[in-house]
Structure formats: structure tokens, C-alpha cells
Design a binder for these strands. Sequence first.
DNA 1: GCCCAGGAGCATA
DNA 2: TATGCTCATGGG
Length: 205
Amino acid sequence: MNVKQRYHELLEAHGRQGWWPLPHRADEDGFDADGYHPGRYDVVTTEQDRFAIYTGAVLTQNTTWQQAAKAQATLFDAGITGPSDVLDTPESRIADLITSARYYNTKAQYLKHLAHHQRQDGVPTRNDLLGVKGVGEETADTILCYAHDEPRVIADTYTRRWLHGHDITVSGYEGVRAYLDQRLPRDTVIRQEFHALIVAAMKQR
DNA sequence: GCCCAGGAGCATA
DNA sequence: TATGCTCATGGG
């Protein structure tokens, strides 16, 4: 498959998506009401932005983004805007705030683990992240690509379906990841946008 | 009332 | 390694 060509077709059909959405910066210059920032890719600048991506990546697991974003807004409204806040808040309280994101008890536990990890400065390795309970391959790649600007491929279920729709069958997360990793430019912005475009394309049906 | 979303951990074999 | 179960909201 000519992945680069498909990428440009997707871009033409759906436009620039602007991922990862940062709802806490909605209505700021260059952001829309949902926290999207189409056409601007250098927007992640603060620890709070990274915190939003870390938590968003967990909250959206097997859940619609709408529900996850609602849960995240509730967290921010409650004054929980960084890893230290998570650690200072009882797990049951966190769970209570994120019920809209489904699996709230499990995810509250995950957020605790992740907050503890995020407090250690620097860019984590993929293996560091995989060692955190609640962070699997997809969530690790999401965090690295969107919060730390690493050119990672995110091989989620939409990506698998999209490939399958083009008669390409690759098995497992690693199979899909490796297939696209070979065919996409090692460019962070392109890979961020590529994943967002696939989600946009698959949602439309 | 039914279906299923931008997964991951764990037990079992 | 592979499959199956658990978690447990809310919009269409």
C-alpha cells in the first residue's frame, strides 16, 4: 500500500484535525470549543498540557472521546490539573469525578499510578510507560507521540479496521504498528495527524 | 431495551 | 500465545 498517498487523500477529505485535543485550552486563540487546534501542532508547551494528554489517553480507553473529555473537564473543574493533585486526592474521590468515562474505579487507580510516574521528570521510554499499570501499547504510543513529540505509530482498532478495509491483514498490535512504521515518514506531525485522520474517517461510517 | 465506543489486566490452558 | 472474562457510563 502507498500509505503516503492514502495519507494525503485522507487529509484532503477530512482536513487537518489538530490532535491531541486539549479541552482545558478551549476558546483560547487557535483552539475551538472542543480543544482542537487544527493546523497548529506546536501547542503542547506546559506540564498541564502533558497532564491532559496522559489522563485523556487513559480516560478514553474503550470509551468515546466525548465521555472522556467530560470526565477530564470535571477533574480540571475540581482543581485537579496536575499529577501532584491526583496524588493528593483520595482514589475514591477521583473515581467519583470520572464516572462518565466508564470503568471509573479501574481508571482512578490507573491515574494514580500514572501520576506517580509522571512526577519523575524527563521523557519516559516506551518500556517505562508499559511498566505502569493501565498503560498498554496503544496508550504508551499515544503518550509518546502526542505528549513527547516522538514519531510513533498508534495502531488502535480503527487503524486495524482501516487497513482491513484496504484488504491488508496484519496480525496483532505489533504487526499493524510495524507495517505502518515502515511506510510512514519518521515525522511526528505527520504521524499525529495520520492517526487523527483515520479516526475521523472511521467514525464517519 | 439494545448496542457499543479512540483498552488493559488477569486467569486459565 | 491465545482466548475469555472483568470493568460498568451514556448516547444513538
